[in-house]
Amino acid sequence: MANNPILSVENLVVEYGAAKRGFRVLHDVSLDVGVGECVGVVGESGSGKSTLGKAILGLAPVRQGRIMFNGEDITHAAGAARRRLASSIQVVFQDPYGSLDPMMNVGDILSEPLEAAGQSRRAVRLAIAEMIERVRLPASAIDRYPHEFSGGQRQRIAIARALVRRPKLIVCDEPVSALDLTTQAAVIDLFIELQRDIGVSYLFVSHDLGVVRRICHRVAVMQRGEIVEFGDGEQVTRAPIHPYSTRLLLASPVANPQAQARRRAAWLALRQADRVLPAGQ
């Protein structure tokens, strides 16, 4: 547990539908994120990892439990309270092109949240110029539109938009999964640099243990809506204890073709063992 948590999720249950016939997506989930810490949430599709991020952002129905942010209960924050939180909690999505308005240039995309917060034109201009520099884009990017950039550059724009109001926490929902391995590495390095320089905290959602190994201080592994392993990032991503975490590790890609082939063979062997073992074994 973090000594100084900015975010605490306690016994969270998320359920869609009616109370007695609803479909439960999260089962009694608890975790915390410290100030300046990156906590990874890893699992296959359908594990509930993205739903956890949505619940923190107020986009999923919480049935039980609570979400504490900076000492405040935000479990059911709505309306003005949720809008106020936008300055402190931001999100970076998987698809940067889908999350950026194609009709707005980069300058307008970054200035919109600052103008909504009532900042002066001069303050807005300075903040935009600084953020463009921080995410390693040329100053000329301000006047260009999202379709003029590569996927990696668009994700840098999305990161700049998330950071421009200097939030305390960013929910990163598969932020590099749509990028090739080389671009992934560059964007992860950018996340690490920004965290070091600004002190922002991350909840980093991913399906790839190899990705979170590079950036996350602690890692929670989710399966079927539950956290099955949560601990030090190095330990969980290199020598996991839970069998499901081991399967995720073997499924994560590596650059060496021979090592990848060995991982694939071991993963297939585990899957075969799952099929022949009696239920509950």
Rank of each mutant, 00 (worst) to 15 (best):
R161W: 00
D143K: 02
I215L: 15
A178M: 10
V187E: 03
I215M: 11
P138S: 11
E148V: 04
A220Y: 15
P167A: 14
T237W: 07
A141K: 03
P167V: 15
L169R: 01
A139H: 01
H207C: 05
V135E: 03
V176C: 08
H217T: 00
F191D: 07
V187R: 12
G151C: 06
I159S: 02
F191K: 12
R196D: 05
V171R: 08
C216S: 14
L203W: 14
G231N: 12
E234P: 00
S177K: 08
I215Y: 08
R156L: 07
I227M: 10
I142E: 07
E148M: 12
Y202S: 02
H217P: 00
R136G: 08
R161N: 08
F230R: 00
E229K: 01
F204D: 02
L181H: 07
R213Q: 13
R165A: 15
I192V: 13
S201A: 15
P175D: 12
Q184F: 02
L209N: 03
T182E: 01
A162G: 12
L181E: 03
V219C: 10
E174P: 07
R144V: 13
D173E: 09
K168Q: 13
R154A: 05
H147P: 01
H147S: 11
M222N: 10
G233Y: 01
A141D: 09
G231K: 07
L194A: 12
C216M: 08
S206H: 01
V221G: 03
V176L: 06
R156G: 05
H147R: 12
R165N: 15
S150P: 04
V164A: 07
G151Q: 10
T182K: 09
Q195V: 13
P146R: 10
F204V: 05
L179H: 05
S140A: 08
M222W: 13
R214A: 05
V200G: 10
A141H: 00
D189W: 06
E174I: 13
A162K: 01
Q155H: 00
E193Y: 09
P167F: 15
V200E: 01
L203I: 13
D143G: 05
Q153W: 00
D208C: 07
Y145K: 05
S140N: 04
R196K: 14
I142G: 01
S206D: 02
E226I: 00
R214N: 05
P175V: 08
A185N: 10
D189R: 14
A185K: 14
C216L: 07
L203V: 15
R136F: 00
E229H: 06
I227R: 09
S201R: 04
A160L: 10
Y145E: 13
R224L: 13
V228D: 14
R218N: 04
A158I: 02
